[in-house]
Design a protein around this nucleic acid. Sequence first.
DNA 1: GCCCGGTTGAGACTCAGTCTCGACAAGCGC
DNA 2: GCGCTTGTCGAGACTGAGTCTCAACCGGGC
Lengths: 153, 153
Amino acid sequence: MDSTDLPLVAALGASDYRATDARLTVASLIAERAGHFTAADLVAAARVQHRGLGRATIFRALDMFAELGVIERLDLPSGDHAYVACERVHHHHVVCSNCGRTADVDDAGLNAVTTEVARRTGFRIDTHRLELFGLCPDCATDAAARTSLEEAR
Amino acid sequence: MDSTDLPLVAALGASDYRATDARLTVASLIAERAGHFTAADLVAAARVQHRGLGRATIFRALDMFAELGVIERLDLPSGDHAYVACERVHHHHVVCSNCGRTADVDDAGLNAVTTEVARRTGFRIDTHRLELFGLCPDCATDAAARTSLEEAR
DNA sequence: GCCCGGTTGAGACTCAGTCTCGACAAGCGC
DNA sequence: GCGCTTGTCGAGACTGAGTCTCAACCGGGC
């Protein structure tokens, strides 16, 4: 894949930040990952593939991409922090707890929920965060196949 | 307040865990807090009020109460971890980003949202986490008063 | 060539959370 | 009462994610 095709690189180009080698490297590392990833993943991958990339640089790049809205921070049920590459519009994530793959979903009726919550509690809701965890179609199929196999025994 | 009235203490009594002094102290520290609190808050409070309470003990007690379902872990928009005392049934939290007060809300139509998301993405949704942030009625009133005051100038 | 501001990698630092260890206390059989 | 087991304790070492600092580097403008 030509790295200039990456949405992260496009966002970088459209911003006031310079498109340096280090940032392009981080962008391509992120693009290599299908689902969510942790900062530690990137640091490890950078060490293996592109020696010259400091820890601080990766954290700085992640902060910057998060600020540009092209990656988003995620809190896994385990309490760990992770990131996902994503669109810049407001949306939510569904995370496969088996393979880590993620999917974006838009509002999907959540606006009505926040309105209802505001009405019930009297709170003025400014922001919200919805994260959904489960099995992606592939892993769900696998799991179902494995279950029926065990039942057949 | 008689500490035996605390729902945390009741849950502790109903469990297999021993109701030791250290745990009762942690329970009363948690009960003193109206909204969410961090582990560091408790450690600091314990140091000020009840010298003899180790860091590890507080973390262990928090884990235990979380396991009993009487406190719940929360991820603030800042990325910090916090805890809230809460009911044992499944529910969600609304957090005041000004004073930290929290309110519990039940499903409020979210079930429909998860069903819709599952339908659209093909994921099998197992768990989810919804956190809402905004201003509680008091802080919202204050904020509104301050805004109108500034407009009058 | 020189300056300036943005960016870099290295490494020190911080701090939340975990782990380990020896001490202690409650419960229980004898 | 005694000894054993088990659960719990506090202290402090440890770990690892994330931040901060600093000197070096780089490209652009003059």
